[in-house]
């Protein structure tokens, strides 16, 4: 494992911890899109189907369990927890996220590396992850006061995918035959979706002002 990959995983882990910290200790999910969280839960459930069939490493299995457990518990918190539920911006979080599922699934059926159940589901999870942040970005645009934890959460999520791109570039030059167009292109699309957010995030940081996205 190279340093970019490890840094990417750690940023991803940090993003989940920041979100859990906000939800668990402050008992608030204000500014967080349930739609995006539901899509992430579907992403991990369809990607990690191999968790009980293929053993890669203890690190790999543990991280998969963490991402599965955290994504489903976040959805549970926002939907079911008495206090957290109350802070959910339901009227603002209106993105029709179910409409993303079918196109991603059809694309995975059409464009994949191997037409097997596990491989199609894995490909589907990559396509879905690429666009899963959209409801969250729309919600951020509508939020007047984006709190620090929410801003950091989205920043860490974007950084995670950016670091994965560096990891792929590194692996391409250091490992023979390492060519995987599907994760690369969907990962690139996913990172590009954060470009606008990154710009305003750094602007607010530079000028020491509160983060706000133009509607």
């Amino acid at each position: 494992m190279n340093i970019f990959r490890l840094a990417g995983d750690m940023t991803h882990l940090a993003s989940v911890l920041v979100l859990l910290l906000k939800i668990h200790t402050i008992k608030s999910c204000a500014g967080i899109s349930l739609k995006t969280q539901e899509l992430f839960a579907i992403v991990f459930a369809s990607r990690y189907l191999d968790i009980f069939t293929d053993f890669i490493s203890l690190y790999n299995t543990l991280m998969k369990l963490i991402f599965l457990g955290s994504s489903f518990s976040i959805v549970w918190y926002i939907r079911r927890h008495k206090l957290v539920r109350r802070s959910y911006d339901k009227d603002q979080d209106t993105f029709r996220h179910y409409f993303l599922l079918l196109p991603c699934f059809i694309l995975a059926l059409l464009i994949n590396e191997k037409f097997t159940f596990k491989e199609v589901m894995w490909t589907f999870s990559l396509y879905l992850e690429a666009v899963a942040i959209l409801p969250q970005l729309v919600l951020l645009q509508r939020t007047k006061n984006i709190d620090n934890l929410t801003g950091q959460y989205v920043f860490l999520l974007g950084a995670y995918r950016g670091l994965y791109i560096l990891n792929w570039i590194y692996r391409y030059f250091t490992e023979p035959h390492y060519v995987h167009w599907i994760p690369w292109i969907s990962g690139l699309v996913q990172t590009l979706l954060y470009a606008d957010f990154f710009y305003y995030y750094f602007e607010s940081w530079k000028n020491n002002k509160k983060l706000q996205l133009p509607a």
Binding site: D50, W122, N167, H180
Partner: peptide
């Protein structure tokens, strides 16, 4: 092999 190489990523 190739399958493992790809699936070792999260």
């Amino acid at each position: 092999d190739e399958a493992v190489e790809k699936h070792d990523e999260l």
